[in-house]
């Protein structure tokens, strides 16, 4: 469904992504991990054609995205950005409905409204429907943006640290929701900083460092002490969680009095 080949991206002279290759099939939940500034956000922006690569191709269902119109891309790919701020007093419902933008010619249909309502319910924000977007908490806003992205009914959902503002319950709920969407066939690509959540939810993990993919594979293949040491410069211990049957990682910390 999604095929990325030999992608190079730079901001002016400064090359940020180098020779990235990645493919995703229906139903995959892909985690992108890597230290700050390693190029994760840049990769997501390139997949939506907001940033043009210096070379390489991105194909969605066999079509090069450079040849697609912006509303065609938006029907296929939705994005939940890392930082969102909206200063205009739209209601939550208005903002979620904007997810239907690629489908709407002049004004929204009953179907558009139904989809938006459905997604608001699924993301637990239906009760906020009439509130002004400028008056939400960070976590509420993040769920609105996720609802908006789901309202686009995309084939590919890109999430840039989707749970950074969410409390522990909402983190799990949102990720469960997204996971469910992916088992129904949506491709999910999520930038995640929580390695344990990544290990639990992802079928595949990509580890970025300085714009290069240094490891791709199952959580077990990627989240090894040596890989993490190389990427994050941090010693970790990898353990197995019998209950979830996934692995979890712990940084090896020094006792506090030795810092």
């Amino acid at each position: 469904m999604l095929k990325i080949k030999d992608l190079n991206v730079s901001y002016g002279q400064h090359q940020v992504l180098e020779k990235i290759g990645l493919s995703a099939v229906k139903g995959e939940f892909i985690g992108i991990i890597g230290p700050n500034g390693s190029g994760k956000t840049t990769l997501l922006k390139t997949i939506t054609n907001v940033l043009k690569p210096t070379s390489g191709t991105i194909m969605i269902d066999g079509t090069n995205i450079e040849k697609m119109k912006s509303n065609e891309i938006a029907k296929n790919v939705a994005v939940v950005s890392q930082v969102v701020s909206i200063n205009f007093e739209f209601t939550v419902k208005d903002i979620v409905l904007m997810g239907r933008n690629p489908y709407i010619k002049s004004s929204e249909s009953v179907e558009d409204i139904n989809i938006a309502n459905d997604m608001m319910k699924k993301t637990n924000i239906h009760f906020l429907k009439k509130r002004l977007i400028t008056r939400l908490s960070g976590g509420e806003l993040q769920r609105v943006i996720i609802a908006r992205a789901l309202t686009q009914t995309p084939k590919i959902l890109l999430l840039d640290e989707p749970t950074s503002h969410l409390d522990i319950t909402n983190q799990i709920e949102i990720l469960n929701l997204v996971k469910k969407a992916s088992t129904k066939g949506m491709v999910v690509i999520a930038v995640m900083h929580d390695l344990n959540l990544a290990a639990y939810y992802c079928n595949k993990i990509c580890l970025l460092r300085d714009g290069c993919l240094i490891s791709t594979g199952t959580p077990r293949q990627v989240l090894t002490p040596s890989n993490i040491e190389v990427a994050f410069n941090l010693p970790i211990e990898v353990m197995h969680n019998n209950r979830t049957n996934s692995l979890y990682v712990m940084p090896i910390l020094e006792p506090l009095n030795e810092i």
Binding site: S70, A78, D94, N101
Partner: peptide, 24 residues
């Protein structure tokens, strides 16, 4: 008037508008 809706989406910022399929 025909572009009212698109202008609304543009208020979210150019990048967000592009994600939502607006040809900015």
């Amino acid at each position: 008037y025909r572009y009212s809706w698109k202008l609304n989406v543009m208020l979210l910022g150019e990048e967000e508008a592009q994600y939502l399929g607006v040809n900015v």
